[in-house]
Simulated assay, not measured.
Amino acid sequence: MLGKIAKWMQSKELTAGKDELELDPNLIPEHVAIIMDGNGRWAKKRGLPRVAGHRAGMKAVKEVTRAANDLGIKVLTLYAFSTENWKRPKDEVDYLMKLPQEYILTELDELIEQNVQVRMLGNPEQLPSFTVEAVLEAKERTKLNTGLILNFALNYGSRDEIVQAIQQLAGDVKCGQVDIEEISEEIFNRYLYTNGLPDPDLLIRTSGEVRLSNFMLWQLAYAEMYFSEVYWPDFSKRELWKAIYNYQHRNRRYGAV
């Protein structure tokens, strides 16, 4: 792993300013979550339709996924479509629903080659069948991979996730499968979409917005947060490097002095 990081640091793009941004390979965050924001504004700035920004954002997904895998990050969670995004214009929503299928069609072979495992967080019930089928195909074909776990949060809302978890837990209590006195954070975690995964160490949000937007509210309790002014289509491996450099220079106390 250290060799992969060293090789990446030798690239021309990343060695520019290397002295200021040299990373400690022993302090790479285990789980990075990203709110990919700014596609529409990126397009508007260039006089393009919003969907052009979403397409450009796919290239950033590819680059950041490669970079995260090279760095040895174990889990990368990307906020792709929220439960609130259904309020957007129908043509934009329709286009967004096609992107997972397009991304997987073009990138799945490389993801398999790179030992990446694809997963999904969110409620699939409202999603079009072709979107769900594309994600399920990717999950099935990468399920034995042991490298980076790439989570796409689709039709995901944290409040919805928590409510569903409470409903399922309450049902198990009612049926006698769980003793109410035994309920703990650990047991509650089992009912969340992220069951079995570590909580994010680092949250990144692009485009200058400084809010969580109903994203992983439970899981982000002790995450470090990094807000970038860069619109998502322009968020490169260099920008990821900068976010992790910033993360490594913080003191994570988890409530201690």
Rank of each mutant, 00 (worst) to 15 (best):
Y191P: 00
T142C: 04
I112F: 04
Y79R: 04
G38M: 08
V93A: 10
A165I: 05
E20R: 13
V132Q: 10
W218A: 01
D199C: 04
L108I: 13
G196E: 05
R250P: 07
Q126Y: 08
G57W: 14
E209T: 12
L148H: 07
K12G: 01
N39F: 01
G38A: 08
R159F: 05
A67V: 09
Y193E: 02
V230K: 13
L217G: 07
T142R: 05
F215H: 02
R88M: 12
E84P: 12
T206E: 08
G40A: 05
A43V: 00
D201F: 09
Y193M: 00
W241Q: 11
I183H: 03
S184T: 15
L48D: 04
G53R: 02
L212Q: 05
A68C: 15
E125N: 14
Q117Y: 01
M36E: 07
N251M: 01
W241F: 05
S129L: 12
E20D: 14
L21A: 02
M36D: 07
L14Q: 02
D201E: 13
Y231F: 08
G255F: 08
E229G: 05
Y231M: 06
T83A: 07
A80F: 13
A68L: 06
A52G: 03
G47C: 01
I162W: 07
A165Q: 09
F81K: 02
A16S: 11
W232N: 10
L154Q: 10
D94W: 03
P89G: 03
L96I: 14
K44M: 08
R205Y: 14
K139P: 04
A223Q: 04
E181A: 14
L96E: 04
V210W: 03
Y103G: 09
N251D: 08
N26W: 11
M97Q: 11
Y247G: 01
L23R: 10
R88A: 11
N195I: 00
K12Y: 11
D24P: 00
